[in-house]
Simulated assay, not measured.
Amino acid sequence: MIDTDLLLEKGATYRHTEAGEIIFNEGAQATFYYQLVSGKVRWSHFDDNGKEVLHKIVEAGEAFGELPLFDGEPYGASAVADSPCTLLRLSTTSFHELLAEHPDIHLAFTKSMVSHLRFKVFLLNALAKNNPQTALVELIDYFNRHGKLICQDCNRLMVTRQQLANMVGLRVETVIRAIKQLQQEDKLCIVKGKVFVPADGV
């Protein structure tokens, strides 16, 4: 989202994480702006029983955990490295200075937050239909239309069945059954356990 050289000029530093490492916890105060250079990060809430509600999978080039930098409130979810990651982090003070110096970047963040909000509304509408297969079709189609979490070269879905379940609040067994049904309807293709999406959508 922000040019790497610009971040480094403002004092950003690199951080490397291992898969499963917690980058920040829900409820903590935000002290850095984070931007992912490589790898994937899960932005999730965990209930008292350890069940994960997956809000977003952050991909390389995207920012995460930025909302508290605008309202001063604690993190609403935790960030967990889904794979070995390299990220850039910039202090909150320097981040605010950067926004003041570059109104175009500030506007880009506004658009990004609107996009996140629209996705949440979309997901709520899909789940309100109370049909797991419909919810999955609409979610995968959303990924396809927005170029998210689907390999642009081979059309492979880049999330696991468990992650899909965590996104839509379903049991993984329900997601597996729904995916098999979609395969029988020729809406998805499964090869060696990997899910592939038709180029023209599900």
Rank of each mutant, 00 (worst) to 15 (best):
L6Q: 11
E18A: 15
G20K: 09
I22A: 14
I23N: 03
G27P: 05
A28K: 07
Y34E: 08
Q35P: 09
L36M: 06
V41S: 09
V41Y: 08
R42F: 07
S44H: 09
D47Q: 10
D48C: 02
D48T: 13
D48S: 13
E52M: 09
V53D: 13
H55I: 11
I57N: 05
E59I: 14
E59P: 01
E62T: 03
E62A: 07
E66H: 03
L67W: 08
D71W: 07
P74W: 07
A81D: 03
D82L: 14
C85I: 15
C85G: 10
T86A: 08
T86Y: 01
L88C: 03
L88N: 08
L90F: 02
L98N: 08
I105H: 02
I105C: 03
V121P: 02
F122A: 08
N125S: 14
N130S: 13
Q133R: 15
I140A: 01
F143Y: 12
N144E: 04
N144V: 00
K148R: 14
D153H: 15
M158G: 02
M158E: 14
N166R: 07
L170T: 08
R177S: 14
K180W: 10
Q183K: 14
I190M: 10
K194R: 15
A199K: 14
D200R: 10
